[in-house]
Amino acid sequence: MMLQLSQVSIVKNQQVLIKDFNLTIPNGEIVTLMGASGSGKSTLLSWILGVLPEAFQAQGHLQLNGQVLDHIPIEKRCIGIIFQEDLLFPHWNVGQNLAFALPKTVQGKTRRERIEQVLEQVGLAGFYERDPATLSGGQRSRVSVLRAILAEPQALLLDEPFAKLDRALRSQVREWVFTQVQALNIPVLLVTHDEDDVPLGGRVVELVAKEE
């Protein structure tokens, strides 16, 4: 059970961004992907999600738990994504944002109860009806992570999720996120600039920018 990238090469305008990249992340591991700006970190995440812009040409294979995902649309990949912006949908309250992620197998009143319960678990009890715009940065981050988790992904991508938080909040949210995602026991790929973001004893993969 793992996320596996094999022989990934990405080219844009005949310029090689990534060449023959391989990576395997077993369940429960958080691998950190680092590299300078322009080294192709975000491009690689877009490729894993299946939303690489058409200007890029990519080769290589992606497997999740033995299933080949190469030609599967993003909504069928079961890969969650958390960006540095929380991207909570502004026309919905906190609870509605979370309900959107919750699978339909949870039905009726149980949906609200389940959301209230997870909100309480992360210290946001009573936040169901709150407008996302009135939340602090840390609270928004937590709701955003909860939303990704509630959809029950089989792998998770974190695209510099702590970059917009101030220093004091950063370490606090970081520890909280790591605890949450480790409990899921799924492969997690974290992209960051900041060495402080690397989980203790975690594996780091460096992506080197290709020369023009």
Binding site: L49, I74, E75, I81, F83, L87, H91, F100, A151
Partner: peptide
Amino acid sequence: QHILRALHVAQSLGYGRLQIWLQVLLPQ
């Protein structure tokens, strides 16, 4: 840029384009 990312987030939650536009993006 945030609209494109919102589209990707909703897709990663398992929704198709038509549903995302009707439920998430059009109301915005």
